[in-house]
Nucleic acid binder design. Structure first.
Lengths: 132, 132
DNA sequence: GCTATATTTGCATGATGACGCAAACACGCA
DNA sequence: TGCGTGTTTGCGTCATCATGCAAATATAGC
């Protein structure tokens, strides 16, 4: 399997499929599977805005779905590496792994930018250090 | 509906659910729904690495699924704002909207960082200008 | 118009997933 | 040990979705 470099670009999608770059690992369906459900997105949003570890009961209050459903969603988000759980007595709390999630998102953006042809690079660059 | 600021943080997830911040729009399930399928992820990866507009037939060669399936996946990715299509004669080509996708990903990362409590900010910051 | 090529659409099927309810489990406390 | 609270798990159901095949559509060239 070839490795893609900025200079060496595959001529066709077929060739690209045998040419592995950083984007292949970062375009991880498991992560996005966790984010693609509206209920989970809402739960994650509430947890993120809250900025601290919250118990399952607390989180369930921000959503109209059943308690058990919330529990399952939080488990799934944890398995995806988005949340981390901690237990204290009978209470289980979940907190956002900000760092991990930010890195995954920025990593993918960076990898895309690497692939982006020069003539479109301007619109792609979003970082504060983006070159004009 | 209240607007979240860095200073004013919701005390509970329930309160957070009535408190809208930038993360609410950026945590868009539609975008992630498009990225959560392994076949679509592969197609997008190939298109991205290729760095140019590719016809449906070309893209189909990098994947073992049926032709019609590829066509449908590409349509879905376009509706999600990830690809853009152009027609030339009987050939339809799709290209990655690098800029749009990068902005969506970085925007979400930035919004998460905004939510991230100060004591975790270091691990969250991933930009080249990140403050230590 | 006719034909070949490129793509899309209709339809059936099998798999996956979200959901609610009830039961089970874990733990603190009397 | 028994009870109450917080959470997880088992299970059935309904909806969504990925897939392949066949038919339909669009377009270029004869």
């Amino acid at each position: 399997m070839m490795t893609q470099t900025r200079r060496h670009r595959p001529a066709s999608p077929k060739q690209a499929s045998t040419c592995c770059g950083p984007i292949d690992d970062l375009l991880n369906p498991e992560l996005f599977k966790a984010l693609c459900d509206p209920t989970r997105a809402k739960l994650l949003g509430c947890l993120a805005k809250c900025g601290r570890a919250c118990s399952v009961s607390e989180v369930a209050e921000c959503c109209s779905v059943d308690f058990s459903v919330v529990s399952r969603h939080l488990q799934l988000l944890e398995r995806a590496g988005i949340l981390v759980s901690s237990r204290e007595g009978r209470t289980v709390s979940y907190a956002v792994k900000y760092g991990h999630l930010c890195q995954a998102l920025r990593g993918l953006a960076d990898a895309l930018e690497q692939c982006c042809p020069a003539d479109q690079a301007a619109e792609c660059a979003g970082g504060c250090c983006a070159k004009r």
